[in-house]
Simulated assay, not measured.
Amino acid sequence: MPISGSCHCGATKFEIDFAPETATRCNCSFCTKKGALWAYCEPDQFRLTTPIRNAAQYSPTTPENKHYFCPTCGCATFSDNPDYSVFAEGDWEESQARFDPTKRRISINLWVLDDFDIEALPIEHVDGRNQW
């Protein structure tokens, strides 16, 4: 059964095909200013159920990083980024060799999920302020 998410006004809505088991809190400047807790999934586990034109995009660093938010109510909803998770798995040079910028990963702001208890999830901390 899919889990629904939406911005506050409902202009941006989506569904995910999985139940998040952890939440990620990143302390980079983007995530802390957004106040988001993230869950990650493959693109085929995420479905936008409203037109993409209902969401605005912000790309603070490079065009590959697409962070979406509602231009009406301002809620950060999801991001579509390269899968940077390989950089957490080993040394920098090895990770660069395995990195494929065409492989995407969707980040969901857990706070915008409807009827889902994120308070029950363990929180993993990422030191994005010093790692990026």
Score class of each variant (00 low, 15 high):
residue 36 A to L: 03
residue 11 A to E: 15
residue 36 A to F: 00
residue 3 I to Y: 07
residue 86 V to W: 00
residue 85 S to M: 02
residue 126 V to Q: 01
residue 120 A to W: 00
residue 90 G to Q: 10
residue 29 S to N: 13
residue 88 A to I: 02
residue 12 T to Y: 01
residue 57 Q to I: 10
residue 53 R to E: 08
residue 130 N to M: 06
residue 4 S to L: 07
residue 120 A to C: 05
residue 52 I to R: 11
residue 29 S to A: 10
residue 69 F to Q: 05
residue 105 R to T: 03
residue 92 W to I: 00
residue 69 F to T: 11
residue 125 H to A: 00
residue 114 D to S: 01
residue 9 C to P: 01
residue 80 D to Q: 14
residue 100 D to Y: 10
residue 52 I to W: 05
residue 115 D to Q: 05
residue 83 D to P: 13
residue 14 F to H: 03
residue 11 A to R: 14
residue 69 F to Y: 11
residue 8 H to R: 14
residue 60 P to S: 10
residue 119 E to R: 12
residue 49 T to P: 10
residue 18 F to K: 01
residue 127 D to H: 02
residue 5 G to H: 08
residue 16 I to G: 08
residue 92 W to L: 12
residue 14 F to D: 01
residue 21 E to R: 10
residue 107 S to Y: 14
residue 35 G to I: 09
residue 24 T to P: 10
residue 76 A to K: 13
residue 34 K to E: 09
residue 53 R to H: 04
residue 119 E to H: 03
residue 121 L to I: 04
residue 110 L to T: 02
residue 40 Y to E: 08
residue 58 Y to P: 03
residue 4 S to C: 13
residue 83 D to A: 11
residue 123 I to K: 02
residue 10 G to L: 15
residue 73 C to A: 05
residue 109 N to A: 12
residue 83 D to I: 15
residue 28 C to R: 05
residue 70 C to P: 13
residue 123 I to C: 06
residue 105 R to S: 03
residue 22 T to A: 08
residue 44 D to N: 05
residue 48 L to G: 03
residue 20 P to A: 06
residue 122 P to C: 04
residue 45 Q to M: 05
residue 19 A to H: 11
residue 104 R to C: 07
residue 4 S to A: 13
residue 100 D to P: 14
residue 50 T to F: 12
residue 51 P to G: 15
residue 78 F to N: 15
residue 13 K to F: 06
residue 48 L to Y: 01
residue 77 T to W: 07
residue 19 A to F: 08
residue 93 E to S: 11
residue 61 T to N: 08
residue 54 N to C: 05
residue 111 W to H: 14
residue 127 D to P: 08
residue 125 H to P: 04
residue 132 W to T: 13
residue 131 Q to D: 04
residue 86 V to G: 14
residue 44 D to I: 06
residue 72 T to A: 10
residue 114 D to A: 03
residue 72 T to E: 14
residue 87 F to I: 04
residue 16 I to S: 12
residue 104 R to P: 00
residue 82 P to Y: 00
residue 132 W to R: 12
residue 15 E to D: 06
residue 71 P to D: 12
residue 102 T to N: 07
residue 23 A to P: 11
residue 26 C to E: 03
residue 54 N to Y: 03
residue 74 G to Y: 01
residue 121 L to G: 09
residue 31 C to L: 04
residue 7 C to T: 13
residue 59 S to M: 06
residue 88 A to W: 05
residue 12 T to I: 15
residue 109 N to D: 07
residue 24 T to A: 06
